[in-house]
């Protein structure tokens, strides 16, 4: 652990603290108070007597100074208590844990597929630079990279699921299906996840393609490649040992840096396909005004993204020992 890494870690902790605090302050900054909310929701006017008001304030700990509330909020959070859902009448953490896996599944599948396809196509394009294949790939992938994932998802939904009936319209599994064996269950899950994953993958592949194409082109112009060829190394060895290895570095950072926007895309795509992940849950929670649940999801999603970025920092430092000042990787 050198000094740079320690400061970097401190920054991440600071960010998490800011988000957690924001999460604490948001409902308190919102117009109205819990009593206004309670009395306006029932339909007829419910007036709390002063005694009742005091009772509930004490019950929810709202009569204590904000500092004390903040401390107890933090200690509860450290114990993994995200509050209690008003709508589902269940601890928020339980609900989120049930749904988290579906979102992870979509995002990870899309990351792997798009990175792989994008890198392969980008390398091919760079290799055949300025030939027709490069021009063809470049044109098509640029268009694809600019269409948001949820708009792509809508097209896929209406052509392949509603129109041709090849894929299910919604959900992650067939309801009330009695599976004969585990293989059938896996197939069913893949069948449901296919279109959402494809939508997310297509929307991301373009960006990965452009990046890897650029990166490979840069490496191809380097002197050490001429040296490698002059040494009489086989083309295969040049490509895999010299070109791809060096071109991979910016791709690795990009994979993690773009996770934030991918999560945003996944939230929307889940809602297109009514896929039961966190994005869909978040919208449900907003619709029924389940504030503790909304906050819990927000917290979990942002912290997951931050964690992924921290891992990226770490991996990047290991992959490229030249990087000792992090700001250089951004190109300042």
């Amino acid at each position: 652990m050198n000094k740079k890494r320690v400061t970097r870690l401190a920054e991440y902790f600071f960010t998490v603290w800011v988000i957690v605090t924001l999460n604490f302050l948001l409902p308190r900054a919102m117009p109205g108070d819990p009593f206004l909310y309670l009395s306006s929701d029932v339909g007829e006017e419910v007036i709390f007597s002063e005694e009742q008001r005091q009772y509930y304030l004490a019950y929810y700990g709202l009569d204590r100074p904000v500092g004390g509330q903040y401390l107890s909020y933090m200690s509860e959070l450290l114990r993994g208590n995200l509050g209690h859902s008003l709508y589902y009448n269940e601890p928020v953490s339980h609900i989120i844990l049930r749904r988290l896996a579906w979102t992870f599944f979509l995002v990870i599948a899309a990351v792997i597929l798009s990175t792989f396809i994008g890198t392969v196509l980008g390398s091919i394009s760079a290799w055949y630079r300025e030939k027709w294949l490069d021009k063809f790939l470049f044109f098509n992938l640029i268009i694809m990279s600019e269409i948001p994932a949820f708009l792509l998802g809508l097209v896929l939904l209406f052509s392949f699921a509603a129109g041709l009936g090849l894929f299910p319209l919604s959900g992650a599994m067939t309801h009330f299906a009695g599976y004969e064996n585990w293989w059938e269950k896996v197939l069913d899950i893949l069948h449901h996840a296919f279109l959402p994953v494809i939508a997310l993958t297509i929307a991301r592949t373009g960006g990965m393609y452009l990046l890897s194409r650029n990166s490979v082109i840069t490496v191809l112009e380097k002197d050490y490649l001429r040296t490698a060829r002059a040494k009489g190394l086989s083309e295969k060895r040049v490509i895999f040992r010299h070109v791809l290895r060096n071109a991979m570095l910016p791709i690795v950072t990009r994979v993690f840096l773009s996770l934030g926007s991918l999560v945003g895309g996944a939230i929307l795509v889940e809602n297109v396909f009514a896929y039961p992940g966190l994005g869909h849950l978040m919208r449900e929670a907003v619709m029924v005004r389940d504030y503790p649940l909304i906050q819990g999801i927000f917290l979990v999603v942002t912290i997951c993204v931050l964690l992924a970025n921290f891992i990226a920092d770490f991996i990047y430092g290991k992959l490229d020992p030249r990087v000792n000042d992090y700001s250089e990787t951004y190109g300042g």
């Binding site: 948001l26 999560v263 945003g264 978040m282 927000f298 993204v305």
Partner: peptide, 12 residues
């Protein structure tokens, strides 16, 4: 700011 996902914040 660059790594934070913007859509969840907007929803909140």
């Amino acid at each position: 700011m660059i790594v934070l996902p913007d859509l969840p914040v907007m929803i909140v």
